[in-house]
Design a protein around this nucleic acid. Sequence first.
DNA 1: TATAGAGTTCAATTTAAAATGAACACACTA
DNA 2: TAGTGTGTTCATTTTAAATTGAACTCTATA
Lengths: 169, 169
Amino acid sequence: MTTSLTTGDSRNRLDPIQESLISFFVDGVKLLGLPPSVGGIYGLLFSSREPLALDDLVNQLDISKGSASQGLRMLRQIGAVSEIAKEGERRTYFQAEQQLKQLVGGFIKQEIRPHLSSGKEKAQNLDTMIKDIDDVELKQFYEEQIQQVNRWLAKARLVLPILQKVLGE
Amino acid sequence: MTTSLTTGDSRNRLDPIQESLISFFVDGVKLLGLPPSVGGIYGLLFSSREPLALDDLVNQLDISKGSASQGLRMLRQIGAVSEIAKEGERRTYFQAEQQLKQLVGGFIKQEIRPHLSSGKEKAQNLDTMIKDIDDVELKQFYEEQIQQVNRWLAKARLVLPILQKVLGE
DNA sequence: TATAGAGTTCAATTTAAAATGAACACACTA
DNA sequence: TAGTGTGTTCATTTTAAATTGAACTCTATA
């Protein structure tokens, strides 16, 4: 079976521009550690004039309903796509959000901050662990290394808001 | 077989602090999209007072020579570890570099910039492609979207140096 | 110039991540 | 309340990434 977020086959209606834009986003989200399907979904919405429904994503990208549903969930959580209710229509339509500020903010909140928190926790545990080391020099060495880790964590926490600010239009 | 970058078994000499530090880095590099072995290697070097040779990594982390060799290559390229020549010794020793500035700089240069470049290229191709679209409104829509993409790319190129500067001690 | 140690390479394997698709839940409506 | 359209969930399958390990290169030295 030809799963294809870029090559296109029978059923989809993607023109070359869309294909190209989609592949751009597929590559882009990879850099952020997100699955290709997510890039494809965002790319398609981004390159469509009208909001699309889940079925459209399934058909035009030739992905499963499951992927589409999960991808949309992630994108909504990040704030990269928003829902549109259409008059009299039962299904939900989606469109791509384009405020880089929001995208970055959402991504940082969802994907980065949790990791930083768990890192901080680990570092705190370390502080406890070294308490009962006998070897004085070893203890000192570890103290320094842990301090270093903490400096990095602090710096990371410092940088994220700056990043958001700079990117905010 | 128990491959273990964190749990430890028979042959290795990792104390709980080291284990903890290593797992910290394993998680950390994951966030950057690097393989766990790389985090393990850096973590072990970071938590060792003495520089270590490839064999030490293999033994203490219980990974293959292949992984160790490839992981070290990547870390050296990034600038995260440096080689140490020891008097009269034939093998090469390695130690962890700790200048966040260098680490980030190396990572950006190695892993991020190439992606940005290829993105830029793609965006340029798009500019060419839309030239021969007939539908005026569609054309305009695509022009706007491509412009948006270009704005993002520009912003990314702007942000990286800032990031480096802020992180530089 | 054979032998051994140190490190690299890369095809084959293993492991982890992503995608699928069938079963399910919900809401509307005929 | 049975049926239909829309979307979700999650066990299974597929695909991609990471790791292994055997074969190899290179250098030193016996």
